[in-house]
Nucleic acid binder design. Structure first.
Lengths: 228, 228
DNA sequence: ATTTGTGAAGTGTTTCACAGCA
DNA sequence: TGCTGTGAAACACTTCACAAAT
């Protein structure tokens, strides 16, 4: 996991960035946001590393893939580094998303405050069940699947979030891709196949619990797994 | 991510298993469950690999860390391999969990059918808010935080699930550990520190969306990320 | 013919260690 | 002194390629 994916190139012919480094970037940003709230102006690679259980060298290498942000003897400017990381991650501008599946998980995602804070906005909810159609949740009308195409186009939702059962996940995925989304976050316990230029991130909650069960079975001492 | 964690040892002095391999084990199991439902009796490493976007060599290496399950010329027996993987992952026996946080996410997790199917059972829900106390959700009474200790002991919940805001996550974590849970699944956007012999798996949904945004920004072709 | 299991080779990632700067 | 940025070394993971088994 984390894992078996091709490294990403920032631009054509720049050194490629290890996938694990990209994962850590998000965590650095999260810690920086906490630091700035705590009133800190600068932070060293050592301090940032300690907050996340990483070595200072790791932190410096990761950040150096994207530029030279630090000052020898001082460390990194918290605000500047946050801005840089947001730019690198592409979260400096907002992202519209549409959610498919208005079950328990879908509703929880819709209410999730963390998304808005990070610049993600769920603009529409769709569900296949006629029972739910035109019901309102969190101020959004539940749309029918027939409306998927126009929804994605009119609201310009570049991202789709799949919170439907595994059995319909691939179908929903195909329709989202056809409608023009560029990225899909998948919560169904199913590997999705996509044709073309669409990115996928999958989160299988049961798989995460299995990972935990394995670590506990092993009697692992303090297995700290940052995110994923 | 997948990622920056120490490899795990199955038993003392056996070859250590790469962390990425453990992540894939859960995915193999998921595919095997689908295969058996489809009536398949055997599967080759090549077929299993294709289902997950992995090479056949990768699949064989991963499985070989735990034993010799395959038959040359034939492949793997689907049912036998499922049994073996469940045993390796520790999910052949049930796992009791207690959930802290009865907000939107907590409720969604409680209703999540995928957990029960995999042998995980949420036995109790707790929440700090007096407003929710003694309310019932999904057949479970919402307990006060004062009841945490007795709940963990009496119901023998080896796992704790944290679905509270970041600000109280560390406190909840400490209390769960003190009460005796051996593993914690954390949904708060906060790195948890644990003392001693407790495993942690964290899932930060906003971080996952950031990963997706990054991949889309890069114009990645078909970035298939198995779980994570 | 097909497929496993596995050493060896290849590739990718992390850590080390130090020059250079504040 | 304290810290960054970075080549070089160490380590980890994946892929290759083939002997052995059916």
């Amino acid at each position: 996991m984390a894992d078996s994916e091709p490294p990403t190139r920032p631009h054509r012919d720049l050194p490629s960035i290890p996938a694990p480094a990209v994962k850590r970037l998000c965590l650095y940003l999260r810690e920086l946001e906490a630091l700035t709230e705590a009133g800190r102006n600068t932070v060293s690679s050592k301090q940032l590393g300690q907050l996340l259980g990483l070595t200072d060298a790791q932190v410096r290498k990761d950040l150096a893939y994207f530029g030279q942000f630090g000052q020898p003897g001082i460390g990194y400017d918290v605000n500047q580094l946050m801005t840089e990381l947001r730019r690198v991650l592409g979260t400096d501008k907002g992202w519209n998303a549409c959610l498919v599946g208005a079950g328990n998980l879908g509703r929880a995602l819709l209410a999730h405050a963390g998304f808005e804070r990070k610049g993600f906005r769920i603009m529409a909810v769709l569900d296949a069940s006629p029972r739910l159609q035109n019901e309102y949740i969190h101020g959004l009308r539940i749309r029918s699947m027939d409306e998927l195409d126009e929804t994605v186009r009119e609201l310009e939702t570049r991202l789709g979030i799949i919170a439907v059962p595994a059995s319909s996940a691939q179908d929903v995925c195909d329709r989202l891709v056809a409608a023009g989304v560029r990225g899909i976050m998948n919560f169904a316990p199913k590997r999705l196949q996509v044709s073309g230029d669409v990115s996928i991130v999958s989160v299988d909650l049961a798989v995460q619990l299995e990972q935990l069960a394995f670590q506990v079975s092993l009697g692992r001492r303090s297995g700290a797994t940052p995110s994923d």
